[in-house]
């Protein structure tokens, strides 16, 4: 896990900051929320641009289809709530009114994954990436840290069409310096290595970097990839990992069913089959606890990744 002296940063805060900045420059940017605007940080946009901010109340389905209507009439729309509601209460509205007609709506969901913490299983969403990546026309973005969240918000506003972005509640350590531009659909190789590849997304990218240092101490040279777009998937980087290292570990704060790991398996099986070990939530719901305690309990840690690397390398032999 993150070492004590690392400065943790809020992804939500950076999402809200990007919206606020863009709102000043783009009169066609509108933002919707469903009664969680303080938590998702859309409230700052609402204070600055009250005529372009629509708090829909606890009505997620209406929020999503209203967002679609705003986009059909020419607006660039961000709609936010917690990931469990943003995708779980609204799947058919997203499917029919956003994905199918390719509406210019960006669903930006906070409180994704296990690190929601004490709120417990009903609020910990591990299935959202799967729901969204299964939709034609949908772009799925998972920024790894605060700075990437800020950049991704700009990138989503600049692209036309539907997109889903998810980030967590908990503050996370930085993995990017903010200088490298965020390009939707492009993964970044954070560390070169020849023995194994760790392809991670979200806050597990940081754990992957720590894991690579731990592995290096034992003579294993791991390549680390930040897969910040799940769809469209950077298949080129994945196949490059398969060819160069011959084994892959995926790491995500999401169910191992339908998430990044399955996307990577689909890419390798069709292009260059190698053993893949998927680290994530093992088809389970969560529970209450502090974010860091939960990540340890469910094995979503650097140690968990090191353990997965050992297992995948065993399979390869």
């Amino acid at each position: 896990m993150a070492s004590a002296n690392l400065k943790l940063e809020s992804q939500r805060k950076e999402y809200g900051r990007a919206l606020l900045e863009m709102g000043a420059k783009n009169d066609d940017l509108v933002v919707l929320d469903s009664d969680l605007s303080v938590s998702t940080r859309t409230a700052d946009f609402g204070k600055a641009f009250p005529d372009r901010f629509f708090n829909c109340g606890v009505s997620e389905a209406n929020m999503v289809a209203t967002a679609a209507g705003l986009a059909m009439a020419g607006k660039t729309v961000f709609a936010s709530t917690f990931a469990v509601f943003a995708t779980g209460m609204t799947y058919n509205q997203i499917r029919q009114s956003i994905a199918y007609p390719s509406t210019n709506v960006k669903i930006a969901a906070s409180h994704a994954g296990l690190s929601v913490g004490p709120d417990g299983a009903t609020h910990q969403m591990f299935e959202d990436i799967g729901l969204m990546r299964g939709l034609p026309n949908m772009t799925v973005v998972v920024p790894a840290d605060a700075s990437q969240t800020y950049q991704a918000t700009y990138a989503l506003a600049a692209m036309k069409g539907p997109a889903y972005m998810r980030f967590g509640r908990a503050d996370v350590p930085p993995v990017s310096d903010g200088h490298e531009p965020f390009r939707i659909g492009k993964a970044s190789v954070l560390r070169e290595g020849k023995d194994v590849s760790i392809i991670a997304t979200g806050q597990l990218v940081h754990a992957a970097l720590i894991a690579s240092s731990m592995l290096a101490e034992h003579g294993t040279d791991a390549r680390v990839v930040n897969m910040s777009t799940i769809k469209p998937l950077d298949t080129g980087v994945i196949l490059d990992c398969a060819r160069k290292t011959g084994a892959i570990v995926t790491a995500e704060e999401h169910n191992v069913v339908n998430g990044l790991g399955d996307a990577v398996c689909a890419a390798t099986s069709g292009g260059y089959p190698v053993p893949v070990r998927k680290l994530g939530l093992n088809d389970t719901f969560g529970e209450s606890g502090q974010a860091e305690e939960l990540m340890v309990r469910y094995g979503l840690t650097a140690e968990g990744i090191v353990d997965s690397v050992a297992k995948v390398m065993k399979i390869r032999q």
Binding site: F54, T66, G69, M72, K75, R95, Q96, Y100
Partner: peptide, 22 residues
């Protein structure tokens, strides 16, 4: 608007009405 799954048309109308007002 593409429709077929019931219940969404009025929400979409709300979005269009808000955009037109702006």
């Amino acid at each position: 608007v593409s429709t077929g799954s019931l219940g969404q048309g009025l929400s979409i109308a709300c979005g269009i009405a808000l955009a037109h007002r702006l």
